[in-house]
Each structure stands twice: as C-alpha cells, then as structure tokens.
Simulated scan of single mutants.
Amino acid sequence: MSRRRLLSAGVLAAALLTPIPAAAQAEPGCTDAQLIMARGTDFDDGLFFAAPDAIPDYKVGEPLYAALQEADPERSWSQYNVAYPADLVGVVGVPMGSKDLVAHLEARAAACPNQLFVLAGYSQGANVVGNSIGMNSSSATVGGPVAVTIPAELEPRVRAVLLFGNPMHAEGKTVPEPYASRSRDYCEPGDPICNGLTAPGTDFDAHTNYYHYMPAAAAFVLAQL
C-alpha cells in the first residue's frame, strides 16, 4: 500500500475513533421551568418570601408559585428566592439583588440547558428584577442603579416578567424590549408605592393586596411558555 493510502487510512481511523461531542446534559435537579422571585422590603428570605406572621394577602411568592403549579401541572417547577438585604437601603441592596439574580440565572441556565425562567418581583423586589433587565430604579422608592443585566444569549429563556407593587410604575417607567411583550406590571388601585404617594385615594393597605392577581399572573405565564 502506498504511503498516501496509509496516511489516508490513518486519518479515517482516527476520525472514526474520535468521540463525537455530546449535547449539553442537564444536571440532576433540573426542572422544566423555574420561578425566580425577589421579595419586598423587610420580608424574610425563606421559601415563601414573606414574614412568618404575614397575613395571606401580604404574601406574593408562595401563592404565585402555587398558582403556577396549578395552572401548569404537566410541567415541573422549582423556585429561587433572590438573596439580597431587602431593607430600606435600596441603593445598596437593589444592585446586590440584581447581581445575585443574574448570577443564579447564568449558573442555572448552564446546568439546565432546557430550563425556562420566570422573573417576579414584589415592591423593592420589582426594582431588583427591573434592574436585571436594564431598568434604572435610582429615582424610585428604595431603588438603585443598574449593576448588571441578563446576558443577551439568555434573554430568550426568560419567558415572563411579573412586577407587583412596582415602585418604578410611579416613575412612569415601563419594561423595555425585548421583555415588554412578555411582562405584566400589576399595580393595585390606591397603592402609593406604584401609583405615587400623592396619587388620589392612596391607601398603604392596598400595597398588601396582591394575592388576588395570582391566577391571572399564572395564566399569563402559561401563555408565554
């Protein structure tokens, strides 16, 4: 056999023996979708995103997560509570929250290649979520500057953005593209945090009245997935 044929045979054999790279595999614990929730000011950092003694209407994360599971039982769900102080020093805490949100999303997206994401924020948590998609909340109640945003390559996997009692709503700010068409900004009538402190008919109790929005929010999310 000629040297050229020997070389060709060797190249072919090497090619046949070289393993084909496998597609990215999901790590254990991955789910079809995940709710990433940023809690409001003075809420604890537990699973249910509300103070332990909070009345049901004051909670957002727990009923939202339950509503998503009920509306979409064929899909597996998980949840993540954004780690940040959620205190009255928003100019520090909000950027910390957005950094944690983006870092978690990046890590989870890499570990779970097929997982989709829903972002939700209540009160100060809406500032955290908003900052992560490019909304500067420095002028809003307990807001802060944009520190980091979700990478463009992960944007298609963020299927819905939900804001409740959003302080940026009072500033006239809206969710920017490409997230605008897959977002909902829920502002209860009379809530001074999202309507403004000088709006007529303001009632601070209205800021705790978001429980009844959960079925509609879950239905909206389901339509986006």
Rank of each mutant, 00 (worst) to 15 (best):
A120D: 01
V129I: 13
D42V: 09
N127Q: 14
P56C: 06
C194Q: 04
V129F: 02
A24K: 12
D205Y: 06
I36K: 00
F43M: 09
L101K: 11
P145H: 13
L105C: 07
D191M: 08
Y65F: 15
A51Q: 14
V148R: 10
D32L: 01
A22Q: 15
Y84A: 07
E62I: 08
S78R: 01
M214A: 07
G61T: 07
G165Y: 07
M37Y: 14
A111K: 04
Q69P: 03
H169Y: 13
G97E: 06
L197A: 11
G144Q: 12
A14Y: 09
F164R: 04
L88R: 08
G125K: 03
D57H: 14
V11D: 02
Q34V: 10
P52Q: 02
E62Y: 13
L101F: 07
Q115M: 09
P28L: 01
I55Q: 15
Q34Y: 00
F43V: 11
T208W: 13
A86F: 12
L12Q: 03
F48K: 04
D45V: 12
R4M: 05
D191W: 12
A160W: 03
S132W: 06
D53C: 07
A199K: 02
S181A: 15
S137F: 12
A26H: 01
T174Y: 10
D87S: 06
V102L: 06
S132A: 15
G130E: 03
P215G: 02
D32R: 00
M96I: 11
T141M: 13
Q69Y: 00
D185E: 04
R159H: 02
A38F: 05
E188F: 01
S123T: 10
Y211T: 04
W77L: 01
A24D: 00
P151R: 05
A67L: 01
A14P: 03
L64T: 01
P63L: 06
R182D: 08
H207Y: 13
I55D: 15
S123V: 02
L6R: 08
G40Y: 12
E62M: 11
R108H: 01
Y58Q: 15
C194P: 05
G134M: 03
